[in-house]
């Protein structure tokens, strides 16, 4: 066990029973033990077995990341815990809806940048757009940064959803 103080960003994917209180258990664990949550997404992924996947992006030293994983694994409704960052190649995606209110040249520039980022236009009025952008968190953040310099902006982000590359299945019900 290394005693490194370096703060690392990890994406942890957790398969849980979709039952009342399970999300509160996970969130309570993080707040109660002073861990960070950068983002957290959750939705049912198996309607037959009633399983949900929670994807958590967290920051911590290697010792803290280890603690987070073993503390999560201890919860009764949690089937498996998988550290996608540690396991190597994985894909992460986040979706954001960005509303921008502006006019004139800024409006044209916003549309041009949206095109460069392959954002889709979901809604438009004469003084506003709603864009949908998908990508890694840093791409989404870069797009939002640019939009903020071009007008008044409102943002809704989903948080990171992630999965490993290749033909491996990482998470399964016990």
């Amino acid at each position: 066990m290394t005693n490194s103080d370096v703060i690392e960003r990890h994406i942890i994917s957790v398969l849980v029973d979709n039952e009342p209180g399970v999300l509160a258990r996970v969130i309570g664990l993080f707040s109660g033990r002073g861990y960070n949550i950068e983002s957290l997404t959750v939705a049912e992924v198996d309607s037959q077995k009633h399983l949900s996947r929670i994807s958590i992006v967290t920051l911590g030293t290697p010792m803290v990341i280890e603690q987070i994983k073993s503390q999560l694994a201890r919860l009764v409704p949690i089937h498996s815990v998988c550290d996608l960052t540690e396991m190597g190649a994985s894909i992460e995606r986040e979706l954001a809806l960005v509303k921008i209110i502006n006019s004139g040249d800024d409006r044209i520039e916003a549309l041009r940048i949206a095109d460069t980022f392959r954002a889709r236009t979901l809604d438009s009025t004469l003084e506003s757009f709603v864009f949908e952008i998908t990508g890694t968190s840093s791409k989404v953040a870069a797009f939002i940064d640019l939009m903020q310099s071009l007008g008044e902006v409102e943002i809704s982000r989903t948080g990171v959803s992630a999965i490993s590359r290749g033909n491996r299945i990482d998470l399964s019900a016990k």
Partner: peptide, 8 residues
């Protein structure tokens, strides 16, 4: 997330 009936 509550799906108690389903879980039941």
């Amino acid at each position: 997330m509550a799906k108690s009936a389903a879980a039941a």
